[in-house]
C-alpha cells in the first residue's frame, strides 16, 4: 500500500518519473532509436517499487522499499548524481545497497556519492579481481561479495542476484525482485542489438549457456543495460538463437574450409536483419567467434 502511495505521490509531484506504460515495453526497436545514441536521462517505474533509470545510452534499475533503496550500477559520477536526485523525487529513504551488475567501467563508476550516504556495495567476488587489476579513481570497491547466487533483503523486498558463470564478463549477475517476472540483464541481453563486436573478456560459449539458463527463469519482461526501457523476455530467446547461429555457422564454415572473407556470407542471418549492429558490429562479432573456435578464448 505504501508503494502505491509513494507511486501516486511520485507521479503527482514529479513528472520526470513516469510509470511504465504500454509503449515502454518495446516489442521491437523503433527505427529512429539508436541504442547508444540516446541523450538525456529518464526514470520509469516498471512495476511497484522497481524503477529503471537511463542516463544517455546506459541503463540500470533501482528498487524502492520502506526501509531504503537498493540501487545498481551508478554508471559514472555525473549519471550517479542525477540518479540520486531522481531517487529523492520518489522516496526519502537513502540508498542502503549498491549492486554492481558486472565490472566494466562504463557501468560501475561514480558510486562515491552513495558510499558517502552509507550504502553497502555488493558485487560478485570475481569483479574484485578486475577492480584490483584495473584500478579506477571513480570506482568504489565492494564491501560484500558472493560466489554463486545471492539475495539482498531490505524492507520486505528481496533482490535476487543470479550468477551463471563466465559470459559477457566473468562476474555478471542477472537481477530479479523475488516474485517479479522482470529481469535486469545488463549486457547479457541488449534488446534488438547484435552485441558489441569488440568484447575483450567475452566468452561466447559461456554466454550461450547463460542465455539458455535465463530462458528457464519464467520471466515475461527484461531490462537491458542499453537501449529500450523494457523488452519482452522473448529477446532472450532471440539473442540465444542469434549467438547460436553465429557459433555453429562459423564452426561449420571452418570445417568446410570456407575462406575467412566468405565466412560471414555463408551464414544465414536473414532472421536477424532487424538487429542494430548488423552492419557495423557483425564483421568484428564474426571475427571474435572465429578466434573462439581457433584459439580457445
Amino acid at each position: 500500500m505504501r508503494h502505491l502511495v509513494q507511486f501516486i505521490l511520485a507521479v503527482t509531484l514529479c513528472t520526470a518519473v513516469t510509470p511504465a506504460s504500454a509503449q515502454d515495453v518495446y516489442e521491437r526497436k523503433p527505427p529512429y532509436m539508436s541504442i547508444f545514441g540516446l541523450r538525456g536521462y529518464k526514470t520509469i517505474e516498471v512495476e511497484p517499487g522497481l524503477y529503471t533509470f537511463r542516463y544517455g545510452g546506459f541503463r540500470n534499475i533501482f528498487v524502492v522499499t520502506d526501509d531504503g533503496v537498493i540501487a545498481t550500477d551508478p554508471i559514472n559520477p555525473t549519471a550517479a548524481a542525477v540518479m540520486r536526485e531522481e531517487i529523492a523525487k520518489i522516496t526519502n529513504q537513502p540508498v542502503k545497497y549498491l549492486v554492481y551488475s558486472h565490472w566494466h567501467w562504463d557501468h560501475v563508476l561514480g558510486g562515491q556519492i552513495f558510499k558517502d550516504d552509507g550504502a553497502t556495495f555488493v558485487s560478485h567476488e570475481k569483479c574484485v579481481d578486475h577492480f584490483t587489476f584495473n584500478p579506477h579513481a571513480d570506482l568504489v570497491m565492494p564491501d560484500e561479495t558472493f560466489s554463486s547466487n545471492h539475495e539482498i533483503k531490505l524492507g520486505g523486498t528481496t533482490l535476487e542476484l543470479l550468477y551463471f558463470g563466465p559470459n559477457h564478463s566473468d562476474c555478471n549477475v542477472v537481477m530479479r525482485v523475488k516474485g517479479s517476472k522482470v529481469l535486469f540483464v545488463n549486457d547479457l541481453v541488449t534488446p534488438y542489438y547484435t552485441g558489441f563486436g569488440t568484447m575483450p573478456d567475452y566468452d561466447p560459449g559461456g554466454l550461450r549457456d547463460t542465455l539458455a539458463e535465463m530462458g528457464k527463469l519464467g520471466a515475461e519482461r527484461l531490462i537491458g543495460g542499453h537501449g529500450v526501457p523494457i523488452a519482452p523476455a522473448s529477446q532472450i530467446t532471440e539473442q540465444y538463437a542469434f549467438l547460436n547461429t553465429m557459433l555453429t555457422g562459423v564452426k561449420q564454415a571452418l570445417d568446410a574450409r570456407t575462406p575467412r572473407s566468405e565466412i560471414l556470407a555463408s551464414i544465414d542471418l536473414s532472421a536477424y536483419e532487424h538487429l542494430e549492429g548488423m552492419e557495423d558490429q557483425l564483421p568484428r562479432f564474426m571475427e571474435r567467434i572465429l578466434f573462439y573456435h581457433t584459439m580457445g578464448w
Binding site: 565490472w103 566494466h104 567501467w105 575483450p200 573478456d201
Partner: peptide, 12 residues
C-alpha cells in the same frame, strides 16, 4: 586504436 578505446571505456 579501437581496442584501446574499449580499454578506456570498460577497463579491459
Amino acid at each position: 586504436a579501437q581496442r584501446i578505446l574499449i580499454y578506456y571505456t570498460i577497463g579491459w
